[in-house]
């Protein structure tokens, strides 16, 4: 059974994930019950993964019981939904560099969810959190060299045939260039290193100048 629910209402699609920490909210999202099971609403304006799914990213990249390395969890909004999807028996290794936002991630997500292991660390040092190979590397770190950082993490920690979900914020790679050019350059960078880029999804209107690159190795 999938942990993601899609509902259509008033011509719009709403995403829900099955709440792993029953009764608990992470960022004041709505809790709803469907068939006796509690779900949390997943806001595409606050979560780039939700935005990407609504814009056509396949839902079965992150699956129940899987393992995910999440770089740049921030306060844990998206990470909490990934944790929902993985469910018990899954594993989310969450890495965040900034102590201020890591505090909320540890308190509200890692402490409440047994499938989450938090690290306050730099994604440039994967050895600090190398506890297990994973099925998916999710990378949202807004650094100019983020693609290189993501590939380095994949090389060390992604399983053969695993997936990379890379959030590209064009403005933090180059403020001057056209965002489309930046997305194209990052795609080539991945392909040049032997990745197969399955899709490049622009996240407008949910986020400006952002894209989600889905690649496999």
């Amino acid at each position: 059974m999938s942990s993601i629910l899609k509902e259509r209402r008033d011509g719009r699609t709403f995403l829900l994930t099955r709440n792993l920490a029953t009764g608990k909210r992470v960022y004041n999202e709505d809790l709803v019950v469907r068939d006796g099971v509690e779900y949390r609403t997943w806001d595409p304006f606050r979560s780039k993964l939700a935005a990407a799914i609504l814009k056509g990213l396949p839902e079965d990249i992150i699956t129940k019981g899987g393992k995910v390395l999440y770089l740049g969890t921030s306060t844990g909004t998206t990470a909490s939904h990934v944790s929902d999807i993985l469910g018990e028996g899954g594993l989310l290794v969450g890495v965040e560099f900034a102590p201020r936002v890591a505090r909320e991630f540890v308190e509200k997500v890692a402490r409440e969810r047994k499938n989450v292991i938090p690290y306050v660390a730099d994604a440039r040092n994967p050895e600090k959190y190398a506890i297990s190979r994973v099925d998916v590397v999710y990378c949202d770190i807004a650094q100019p060299d983020q693609t290189a950082i993501a590939m380095d993490n994949c090389k060390r920690l992604l399983k053969e045939g695993g997936s990379l979900l890379l959030v590209v914020k064009a403005r933090s790679i180059d403020v001057v260039k056209d965002p489309r050019t930046v997305f194209e350059e990052e795609r080539r960078r991945l392909e040049g290193s032997g990745y197969r880029v399955r899709s490049v999804i622009e996240l407008s209107p949910f986020e400006k100048d952002h894209a989600m690159i889905y690649a496999t190795r």
Binding site: A110, K114, P118, V120
Partner: peptide, 21 residues
């Protein structure tokens, strides 16, 4: 293993946050 790693990591993360604050 993962559960014991998890508890250690939470403690280490909280220590790092405390130190930074």
């Amino acid at each position: 293993d993962l559960q014991s790693i998890r508890l250690e990591s939470i403690q280490a993360a909280e220590e790092a946050i405390r130190e930074a604050s």
